[in-house]
Simulated scan of single mutants.
Amino acid sequence: MPVPFKIAFVTIGQSPRTDIVPEMMADISLGLPEGSVDVEEFGVLDGMSPDELDAIRASAGEHSFATRMANGAEIVTSTLRTEARLNLLLERVDQQGFDLIVLLCTGTKIEPLKKTLVVEAQRIVDSTVDALAVSARQLGVILPLERQVKDFAERHVFPGSPRLVAASPYAGDDMADRARGLDGCDLVVMHCMGYSKEMLDAVRETVDAPVLLSRRLVAGVVRQMI
């Protein structure tokens, strides 16, 4: 029997990411023999005490991430402190014999690993959008947090002047209502791995343009590597 392909999914929140990984794996494993892929999940916030979680929350004015706790609650964390813990976690995962590590965040910057290939969601999504947006008259971007709208251009560079709106995938925001702010855009990207197929459908009902879902772009790349 062939040895299963081993994937480590790494979230900046807490694992397991029951809101992301099963949907991605349905795309990744479609048509593959049963048992072809083994999956393990890791989270930057796993095992942290309430005091430690408070210490990693974003302060006013800080660059931030919106992510998910194991109980489904949203937490807004400091980009700087989260990335420091993420790089330490990735160093440990790099030693565990995985064939591939998949980051479940479209905003992270990481250090290169020594042993394992990494699918960086941000690079996959941003490079795909960049390739398509060159010919777009108006790019629309949906982000999780209003505070991220203000500093988006410092961490992501897209052609033209993208129109940005905020809608949290974790706080119950009305996706269709928020997407109305992108009326007239001819390409839209849902720029967070937390956005689901159901949320994509809600946006597509509102926006008369192609809509890219980050987790689908990443899943497509992972599938090519198995």
Rank of each mutant, 00 (worst) to 15 (best):
A179F: 10
M199H: 04
P210S: 07
Y195F: 15
R92A: 08
P162S: 06
P144H: 04
D151K: 09
I101Q: 04
M175H: 06
T116V: 03
E154Y: 08
F152S: 06
H191C: 02
R147V: 15
I142N: 00
V188K: 07
V141A: 04
S168R: 03
A166L: 09
S161Q: 15
T106S: 12
K115A: 15
L217Q: 06
R180K: 15
I124H: 02
A166D: 04
V221C: 08
L164M: 10
D94Y: 03
C192S: 12
P162M: 06
G160S: 10
R216Q: 15
P162W: 01
M193P: 12
R155K: 14
R223V: 02
E120Y: 00
D201K: 13
P144R: 03
L113R: 13
V141T: 03
E146W: 03
A166S: 14
T116P: 04
S168H: 04
E205Q: 15
R155G: 02
S168E: 09
T116A: 01
T128M: 12
D208Q: 14
R216L: 12
V125Y: 09
V189P: 02
S214D: 00
S168K: 03
R180W: 06
F98C: 03
V118A: 09
V221E: 11
Q148M: 02
L145D: 05
E120M: 13
Q122T: 13
L103K: 01
K197Y: 14
L103P: 07
K115F: 13
D177W: 09
F98T: 00
E198Q: 15
V222S: 00
L117K: 15
T108A: 15
S196H: 05
L217F: 00
A133Y: 02
V118P: 00
L182C: 13
I110Q: 00
V221T: 11
A166Y: 07
A131M: 08
V157G: 04
V141G: 05
A136F: 06
